[in-house]
């Protein structure tokens, strides 16, 4: 018994010393189980289940008011589900907004949520806990191509730059799960192409809410379609674009 313990300890220490990635024990697998949300009489989410596997890029689409942002609010702890439960890394989980960062979950807000009273660099530094906040922030700014705005106030910058700064803040803490709420909203084709590249290359679990179909179809491994809070389809981009219920939901609201 005792020798066993020692052996395990030894292996574990070796592991730490040689493999940096394996020391990151923050979970990157997310599960939603029969989630329902009611706001008074309105059912914003109706029995939604979804497993976001490690490293996968999962899209959530649906017409306006379908409950996409509400889904994000559930996962980030801003809204408590009326029914159902969440798991993180396979364990039951009750999210709290300010714990997400530490757990390795980053989320951007629909539109931009920014700190206009501080510089772009400081904005990104808010997202990094620990002693290396500044250098990590620079790395994130570099990755999003906005280093030269580091000293500016975000309020004065073009919308596309602000969106990138927000992405930089989300990425600065090196999350394992990235939740993006309409990151392409208000951006032009070039910007969206850049964004698609970033999402594909980011190498972590991504949950993407987006109206821009080309983007969703090109980057996602899997797509969940919501309509009035109900999950009406779940599948690969090819399956989703061939699904008559999906086209109906979109045409139905367009008419």
């Amino acid at each position: 018994m005792a020798t066993d313990d020692v052996a395990t300890d030894h292996v574990a220490t070796d592991h730490v010393a040689t493999d940096h990635v394996a020391t990151d024990h923050r979970p990157d697998e997310l599960g939603l189980h029969h989630i329902s949300v009611r706001f008074g009489g309105l059912t914003a989410l109706d029995d939604v289940s979804l497993r976001v596997a490690p490293g996968r890029i999962v899209g959530v689409i649906g017409p306006n008011g379908a409950g996409k942002t509400t889904l994000f609010n559930i996962v980030s702890g801003f809204v408590t589900p009326s029914e159902g439960s969440l798991t993180l890394g396979g364990r039951p989980w009750r999210p709290r907004p300010h714990h997400l960062n530490r757990l390795g979950i980053a989320r951007t807000l629909q539109g931009v949520g920014q700190f206009n009273g501080m510089t772009v660099l400081e904005n990104v530094m808010v997202g990094v806990r620990g002693r290396h906040a500044e250098s990590e922030a620079w790395t994130a700014l570099e990755r999003c191509g906005v280093t030269r705005f580091a000293g500016d106030r975000p309020g004065a910058l073009p919308y596309a730059v602000r969106k990138r700064v927000e992405l930089a803040r989300a990425l600065a803490a090196r999350p394992r799960i990235l939740m993006l709420d309409e990151p392409a909203g208000g951006l032009d084709a070039d910007e969206i192409r850049w964004l698609a590249g970033l999402i594909k290359d980011v190498g972590i679990t991504v949950l993407l809410v987006e109206h821009h179909m080309d983007l969703v179809m090109s980057v996602c491994d899997e797509i969940l379609v919501l309509d009035f809070g109900k999950p009406i389809a779940l599948g690969t981009p090819a399956e989703i674009s061939a699904d008559p219920r999906v086209t109906e939901a979109y045409l139905g609201t367009a008419a």
């Binding site: 907004p97 714990h99 997400l100 530490r102 920014q114 700190f115 808010v126």
Partner: peptide, 20 residues
């Protein structure tokens, strides 16, 4: 930074890990 983040946008501050 936390002080100013909370002042500017509470929701974004929370998501950045600030206990508002």
């Amino acid at each position: 930074r936390d002080l100013r983040a909370v002042r500017d946008d509470e929701t974004a501050a929370r998501l950045a890990g600030v206990d508002v």
